[in-house]
Design a binder for these strands. Structure first.
Length: 202
DNA sequence: CTAAAGATGTCCT
DNA sequence: GGACATCTTTAGA
């Protein structure tokens, strides 16, 4: 049923969308469509929860102590996917922000599935739509995102990109503290759509 | 080289 | 609310 809510074919956001303050991009990504193109399937979801991670000024960020092999894409050109592996089993998806040379990324924490739901259910091994992508590692599992997409250019409209929602409903943005970090816990750089049931934690 | 933590999810109590 | 899976990265000796 939710598959009938389709988006029009729309262009991926240009690099200028990402080449801005990370916190601002984190807010503006809410309500936008995350698109994953597989060989025979199209997966789409409305982004409903994000977190901003910056650089030297953000002790919770992977980029805080400077570039490493893992985080190098955070220092590169904006508008690329930063996918990292954690806890020995999970992947998390970020989009890079800020001008090249200046680190920044937005963690995509949750999405509301709108297309390819059957495929997502298979990948997540559940029939509960609310459990498909309400968390960063659940989302990457549902959307078939692994480290092979690390560094992928999101402005090309190919395997992975973000685009406009055709007819968005109005929503309110709520900010809160970021989840799962132990430093810089006071910053309210987590953003989510108020009352949306696909957010990981209200 | 060694060790601990990790932008998490799942299952159990 | 807590244990645990599982392994890469990073920090520190």
């Amino acid at each position: 049923m939710q598959d009938s809510l389709s988006t029009i074919t729309s262009a991926p956001f240009p690099r200028t969308f990402y080449e801005r303050n990370t916190v601002r991009v984190a807010k503006e990504l809410l309500g936008k469509v995350l698109v994953r193109r597989l060989n025979s399937t199209l997966l789409e979801g409305i982004i409903v929860e994000t977190e901003a991670y910056r650089g030297r000024d953000d002790a919770a960020s992977h980029a805080y102590r400077g570039p490493t092999k893992r985080n190098q894409v955070m220092f590169g050109e904006p508008g690329h996917a930063y996918v990292y592996f954690t806890y020995g089993m999970h992947y998390c998806l970020n989009v890079t922000t800020e001008p090249a040379g200046q680190p920044g990324a937005v963690l995509i924490r949750a999405a509301q599935p709108i297309k390819g739901i059957a495929e997502m259910k298979r990948r997540r091994r559940t029939d509960n739509v609310k459990d498909l992508s309400n968390g960063p590692a659940k989302l990457t599992q549902a959307f078939a995102i692994t480290s092979t997409l690390n560094g992928h250019d999101l402005t090309l409209g190919r395997k992975l990109y973000v685009t406009e929602l055709f007819r968005p409903d109005p929503f309110t943005i709520v900010s809160g503290t970021r989840i799962g970090i132990r430093v810089a816990v006071e910053r309210r750089w987590r953003f989510f759509v108020k009352d949306n049931p696909f957010v990981s934690k209200q």
